[in-house]
Write a protein that binds this DNA or RNA. Structure first.
Lengths: 250, 250
DNA sequence: CGCATATTTGATAGATTTCAATTTATGTGG
DNA sequence: CCACATAAATTGAAATCTATCAAATATGCG
């Protein structure tokens, strides 16, 4: 199970960066240690100095912070196969905490191993770099979501993004697990729980979304995309790229 | 002037990544072409395929998008010495447009040159990677700002961030040029222009901020930091790092 | 001066939050 | 299986925040 999650991670990288079988194997061979975390548990506190990176095996992880008055904000969600703190390779003191949304399982990989792989194989460095860049693009999209969209649009957009991240999109009857409470949705969208509750009801009344006990059903994907002003381009790559090793080869 | 702006960019990289004199020189030697852009002009449209990266020489640049109903959102500002679309090296089709806020001057550098430098000098790749990661962290902080803070806090936080980016922070009488209109501030903070106007007036009445004709004065930095719930940690590095070339050397 | 742009203001409408209370689900131990 | 405790979802009413609209005032620029 653990090895197969790493290959999910490698597949994710391969979708945007060309990796040779040898490079893929180097990633699969990295040493890992497993662990469980309980709901709401902090995995990596803010301002900690990080020396391990983690991969989500099962469950859901979020990056969170508190503003002055105690209001919590979620700035991103991570699903199985994601490496939430890959960016700490570059900036080892995260400004925001990493926290389990529900009971989850994770793997840990030492920074040393990741750095060694990136040093030895430039295209692995490139894949990591491109992956962190993708995370940055997602964060920008969240700024737009929270800053410029209505409550219903924010929720619809978030559900669309999660569906794409989990690769569950179908024209009809898109369905997937998204084990969050309405409170989490409020924290991710910058709304109150009450308003989330009513907006979810409104989306359901429109026939766009069913969300119960962490299970999501989107009957009509295109309608949901319109409702969420969603353009998945920021999550995708046209084709895998590779440039970092060219002049080494030359 | 143009060369000195590139050295500002190199200094910015050197603050977080160790670059040898040779590596710094390689960056300074990259071919550049200059250009002017007028206020509101789009420099790089969304969904374009980018083959040049730009550096801000003078003025102010913003990344912008429109939501369904036409509301515009600014997701980041770029000041002289910044390279706004460095990330396009990794993801050449930006989801958001790059736009001049006021009349500005920029330089353009071909992707090819940047890729060659990054391929030849792993630490240059590392510096670029770390810089894009920093941009991602800033974006996450903007999610918090727009999602979890009051109107006054959002504005105070933005002014603090710009002061740090421009390295103008002083305990008393921090002052710098920030050539935006209140409309731009509204687009960056997810507020209406009217609400920005009243919040600015309130900040001025509190003695925290004067903002007139694109000129900012922050009389009491610590008070402003409190008002904006600002922790500049996400903009800084403890000390310059370097790891990508170690195993090459070994 | 006159035009264009930016800021300021007031009044109103609408969206969203807050607060408090209730209901519904979920899990746990007896 | 029930009783209980806890967490989550739902509801209503009121308050507050924020946006919208329209108009007036400043400001810069040719």
């Amino acid at each position: 199970v653990q090895k197969s999650i790493i290959s999910t991670f490698v597949d994710k990288l391969s979708r945007h960066t060309v990796l040779t079988p040898e490079e893929q194997q180097a990633l699969l061979d990295m040493p890992i240690t497993g662990g469980s975390v309980r709901a709401e548990e902090i995995i990596v506190p803010r301002e900690a100095t990080v020396q391990h990176t983690c991969i989500v095996v099962r469950g859901l992880i979020a990056r969170t912070t508190h503003s002055q008055d105690g209001q919590r904000q979620i700035t991103s969600f991570y699903v199985p196969g994601d490496m939430p703190d890959l960016f700490t390779l570059m900036r080892p003191r995260p400004a925001l905490s990493l926290r389990a949304v529900c009971n989850s399982e994770i793997l840990r990989i030492p920074h040393r191993s990741l750095q060694a792989a990136a040093s030895h194989y430039p295209s692995i460095a490139e894949a990591f770099w491109r992956e962190t860049t993708l995370e940055g693009d997602i964060a920008s999209e969240w700024v737009v979501n929270v800053g410029a969209r209505s409550a219903k649009e924010r929720l619809a957009h978030l559900f669309c993004e999660m569906a794409v991240k989990m690769k569950c999109v179908q024209e009809a009857n898109t369905h997937f697990e998204f084990p969050v409470t309405q409170t989490h949705l409020a924290e991710a969208t910058g709304l109150s729980t009450v308003h989330v509750n009513r907006s979810l009801q409104s989306l359901r009344k429109d026939g766009l979304l069913r969300f119960e006990q962490g299970k999501v059903v989107i009957p009509d994907w295109q309608a949901m995309v319109r409702a969420g002003d969603f353009d998945g381009g920021y999550l995708e790559s046209e084709r895998p790229l590779r440039f970092l090793d060219r002049s080494f080869a030359a």
